[in-house]
């Protein structure tokens, strides 16, 4: 009996393997296109910095993608193609000239922070492309380069005047905005943030701003009760940024108000955006960032993604 069954069983396996193999060969022809569009304006940095960026980032963040033979095998190739597509949308060093100088700078600092946190290059990518790994020595080169771009100097007349003008306007306490500006994801500017408790402050020397992070009552209570991992629903942060205004004796004050950013915790309502509602309002007119395009939240999420273990919050609150 046994000897009669065995060949049948073996044949079944053979058929299954054949089907799988043919299927595997078949799907090889389902190939999304990964074109290398022309380079409009490449990243311009010193050669040693450039070499690291090219090696670690260019396969997904430039128009000079170098696909290896093993990248081209479906289904791996499908993942590779989608990574490249998304990667180029977020950051493309081959179209560097399309970004304003301030945005270029911000992208570089964001990128190095993604590298430091281990979020980039994607671990699944470096597992195969080991040469793309950023070593501690590479990181030191990148850090030194960015640190060399930081210059702190007393504020010029233009910055002082701009801050003064804004201050005078604000000080007069002109009628509050009657209709609250609303971001594309439905989050409205919350004017009460200034009456909340500050939970920390930051000096950002990468972009010359000073920041105060406020927490609403729910957030402050959660801090006191050690209940911030995860943060409870209803917790809200407001992060305010001002331009730095340095005086002659080294004190740097808050100058022009730049923006207020909110993170609103609701793990159900905002389940698709890491459990947080995101919004940024710029200038005292509170212009919603992103305009009518709800995709601005991708930017928020990409930047906060490395903080997943901290419930996507960068700020480490100060207890008092």
């Amino acid at each position: 009996m046994r000897t009669n069954r065995k060949p049948l069983y073996q044949r079944k396996v053979f058929i299954i393997i054949m089907i799988l193999f043919l299927g595997f060969v078949g799907i090889q022809f389902v190939r999304p296109d990964v074109p290398n569009p022309p380079v409009t304006g490449d990243l311009e940095v010193p050669a040693d910095v450039k070499a690291i960026v090219q090696r670690a980032c260019y396969d997904c963040h430039s128009n000079n993608t170098n696909l290896r033979w093993y990248d081209k095998i479906v289904p791996v190739y499908w993942g590779v193609a989608s990574h490249i597509k998304d990667g180029r949308v977020d950051l493309n060093f081959s179209e560097w000239n399309k970004l304003a100088p301030a945005d270029q700078k911000a992208k570089l600092w964001e990128s190095i922070n993604q590298i430091i946190s281990g979020a980039m290059p994607l671990p699944s990518y470096t597992a195969v492309h080991t040469e793309a790994k950023v070593s501690p020595a590479d990181l030191a080169v990148l850090k030194n380069y960015l640190a060399s771009m930081v210059h702190s100097k007393p504020a010029d007349t233009a910055a002082i005047n701009a801050a003064d003008k804004q201050y005078q306007h604000w000080e007069k306490n002109e009628p509050a905005i009657t209709k609250l500006p609303t971001a594309a994801n439905g989050i409205a500017y919350i004017p009460d943030y200034k009456n909340w408790q500050p939970i920390s402050t930051t000096e950002r020397f990468d972009n010359n701003t000073l920041r105060v992070i406020f927490g609403n009552d729910i957030a402050v209570k959660a801090i006191k009760e050690n209940n911030i991992h995860p943060w409870p629903n209803g917790a809200i942060f407001a992060k305010v940024a001002w331009a730095q205004l340095q005086d002659k004796d080294g004190t740097t004050h808050t100058g022009e108000f730049k923006q207020v950013e909110y993170m609103i915790k609701d793990d159900k309502k905002y389940a698709s955006t890491y459990g947080w509602g995101w919004a940024r309002f710029k200038t005292p007119k509170m212009v919603p960032y992103g305009g009518a395009n709800v995709l601005f939240t991708n930017e928020c999420m990409n930047c906060h993604k490395p903080m997943a273990a901290e419930d996507f919050v960068f700020t480490q609150p100060i207890k008092h």
């Binding site: 600092w109 922070n113 430091i116 920390s200 402050t201 930051t202 000096e203 020397f205």
Partner: peptide, 11 residues
């Protein structure tokens, strides 16, 4: 130095 952000200082 802010451990969470190279480019920032915190109290």
């Amino acid at each position: 130095e802010d451990d969470h952000w190279f480019g920032a200082k915190i109290p």
